[in-house]
């Protein structure tokens, strides 16, 4: 399965040039660029690990690519990596775009757990198959 979080998961995996074009869009909007990674891609896992601080003052996407390369070297294809743009302007003060720029080679996906409740109700839980193993050891490189 393919996790389809983020803006561009239904497109073929982005090339570096394509990532660069989107990073430049974020920079030109005046938003900060943020890189995060995780090996717990649960849809409710909001806080992925930050790869250094958000890049607030860069002018060119080449700077983002330097960090992305470094992040890939460190966490490679055992982690999901996402790139996001943060808008600090009043009324937003939130993420404005977010997309996956790196994912493990195989994605086993999620198990849907059910618990019988009263009145035909089901209590659902989503659990990544990979999450059974400890952090850092979840996806084979």
């Amino acid at each position: 399965m393919r996790i389809t979080q983020g803006c561009f998961s239904f497109l073929p995996d982005l090339t570096d040039d394509q990532i660069r074009s989107q990073a430049q869009y974020i920079i030109d909007k005046g938003w900060a660029v943020n890189l995060e990674y995780t090996d717990d891609p649960h849809p409710r896992n909001t806080y992925w690990e930050m790869w250094d601080l958000p890049m607030f003052d860069v002018k060119d996407a080449a700077a983002v690519m330097i960090e992305l390369d470094a992040c890939r070297k460190a966490h490679g294809d055992r982690f999901y990596i996402r790139l996001s743009g943060f808008d600090a302007s009043h009324g937003w003060e939130s993420v404005r775009i977010s997309f996956i720029v790196g994912r493990p080679k195989t994605e086993p996906g999620f198990r849907l757990l059910r618990q019988e409740g009263p009145g035909r109700r089901q209590i659902y839980a989503t659990q990544a198959y990979a999450a059974d193993r400890p952090e850092g050891d979840r996806y084979k490189s």
């Binding site: 003052d57 080449a62 700077a63 330097i66």
Partner: peptide, 10 residues
Amino acid sequence: KEILKKAMGG
């Protein structure tokens, strides 16, 4: 690296 990142493109 921080300085280099700021200077990228310039």
